[in-house]
């Protein structure tokens, strides 16, 4: 069997999802954002809800998410995506509304917004990318930075006495009665990415049931900020980030 026999349209088993635009992503090589964008595009495509989905993009590297997924988008002020999503969902209750936020956006300046959106039980999806660093502004310490982790503002490693402890925001939100589905995933390997996709799909399905907020944390890498190659960053994440942020479902009220 030669290459021409295999390379036929009917033999395609995987290709770029139709919802991803042809714009070249501005993310660094190996950045987890691209993979998560793709999974969201696949889920929206498979559920057939392209014309019913509104995304809220954050401030941070993923501020330009609206350039890459072909759906309706709004751009929120720093950390305020859950507030904008609340308004959008309440005005258009038949739409699927999701926010896409990093850890600098959600766990720092936007902590109040996410906690109150969760406690109000808004029927939205929150995708939370946690790479433990401020990627866009030059690798400064974030609230989720691990103890001992070197960043441009903690060059000798994060010290609990000086900088405080990392926040496990996902576990905190699981305590709130307004949340329906809380999970933590990653996209560094193919099995992990497939599981993350199922979790994102479940979150979108839950958001249409009117049972509360669905929250998907993706433990991600920032290889530029961490000063590692993309493959080394994935390995470092497995060895260090998973200890503090273990993947798995944390809360599911329909189980």
């Amino acid at each position: 069997m030669n290459i021409e026999d295999i390379k036929k349209p009917e033999n395609i088993v995987y290709r770029k999802p139709a919802l991803l635009t042809d714009n070249i992503m501005h993310y660094c090589p190996g950045c987890s954002h691209g993979t998560v964008h793709k999974l969201i595009a696949e889920v929206i495509d498979e559920m057939g809800i392209q014309d019913k989905t509104i995304g809220i993009s954050p401030v941070g590297c993923s501020v330009f998410a609206y350039n890459y997924i072909d759906i309706d988008w709004q751009e929120a002020a720093h950390g305020r995506a859950p507030a904008l999503a609340t308004a959008t969902k309440r005005l258009c209750p038949d739409k699927y509304v999701f926010t896409y936020q990093g850890d600098g956006d959600l766990a720092s300046i936007g902590t109040a917004e996410i906690i109150h959106a969760c406690s109000r039980g808004e029927n939205i999806v929150v995708i939370f990318i946690n790479n433990g660093i401020y990627g866009m502004t030059g690798g400064q310490m974030a609230p989720t930075t691990l103890l001992g982790m070197k960043t441009s503002t903690t060059p000798y490693g994060r010290d609990a006495k000086l900088n405080g402890f990392p926040i496990k925001i996902t576990e905190m939100l699981a305590e709130l009665d307004g949340t329906a589905y809380i999970t933590r995933q990653s996209v560094h390997t193919a099995p992990a990415a497939r599981k993350a996709k199922n979790a994102i799909r479940k979150a979108f399905e839950y958001s249409s049931k009117g049972i509360g907020l669905s929250f998907v944390e993706i433990v991600a890498t920032c290889n530029s900020g961490w000063k590692l190659s993309p493959v080394e960053a994935n390995r470092w994440m497995e060895e260090h980030m998973f200890e503090k942020y273990p993947p798995g479902d944390i809360k599911d009220i329909l189980k």
Binding site: Y14, R15, K16, M25, G34, T35, V187, A193
Partner: peptide, 8 residues
């Protein structure tokens, strides 16, 4: 390879 490719 394709599912983990960040740039699809």
């Amino acid at each position: 390879c394709a599912i983990v490719c960040p740039d699809s």
